[in-house]
């Protein structure tokens, strides 16, 4: 079924391509979302990546799974082209981040705030570390898939993830104590 749709889409069948890409859309958007500042921007960038996939489909030869190939292009669009798409969204930690170390504030945190704070910390990671965190910890790709998408060895994924988590743990500090998720 997937191969049939791919062949149709290669011949320019937009409907077949839309059916093919449908199940990946949300994940493509998710990755964009964690590198942008707004849903509108993330959707726009995700759509550009999907259009790129459509235009590049003639080059897909089945050497990897379609899913891996798709996300490799997504990664290329998002980052390899000079990271133009997201460069302007590189952010520093929010100014109010310090308060998370204060015990009084910590006690008042709700689950939602906890998630928002961790999200903010993830957004503040340098992009190559953020990418592995988003792929593996947030979007659920396994190490092998992430390695294929980013075209790096599995060991590099492991080490980047380890460093990224250590950075997050450092930034979030005592905030990770005691609170139930």
């Amino acid at each position: 079924m997937e191969m049939e749709l791919i062949e149709k889409a290669k011949r320019g069948d937009v409907g077949a391509f839309e059916e093919l890409i449908k199940k990946h859309e949300q994940r493509i958007f998710n990755i964009a979302y964690h590198f942008s500042q707004s849903v509108v921007e993330a959707e726009d960038i995700a759509q550009d990546a999907i259009v790129k996939i459509f235009k590049s489909l003639k080059n897909f030869r089945g050497e990897s799974s379609f899913s891996t190939w798709v996300f490799r292009i997504v990664k290329n669009v998002y980052f390899d082209a000079g990271r133009k798409s997201f460069r302007r969204y590189e952010t520093a930690l929010p100014e109010n981040f310090e308060w998370m170390d204060k015990k009084t504030a910590e006690e008042d945190l709700e689950r939602k705030e906890l998630l928002v704070s961790v999200e903010s910390a993830v957004r503040a990671l340098p992009y190559k570390f953020r990418m592995v965190v988003v792929l593996c910890d947030i979007d659920g790709f396994d190490y092998k898939e992430a390695a294929e998408i980013l075209k790096v060895p599995v060991g590099t994924i492991r080490s980047r993830l380890s460093r990224a988590r250590a950075m997050l743990k450092e930034v979030l500090g005592n905030f990770l104590n005691g609170q139930s998720v």
Binding site: Q26, E43, I50, L115, V118, D137, I138, L172
Partner: peptide, 22 residues
């Protein structure tokens, strides 16, 4: 705990007109 929290982070659902624009 950090890993558990990150597993709970979700991006918003795609907007209704995402497919139309696409």
């Amino acid at each position: 705990k950090l890993k558990d929290i990150m597993g709970l982070i979700q991006a918003p659902a795609l907007s209704e007109d995402f497919d139309r624009k696409l």
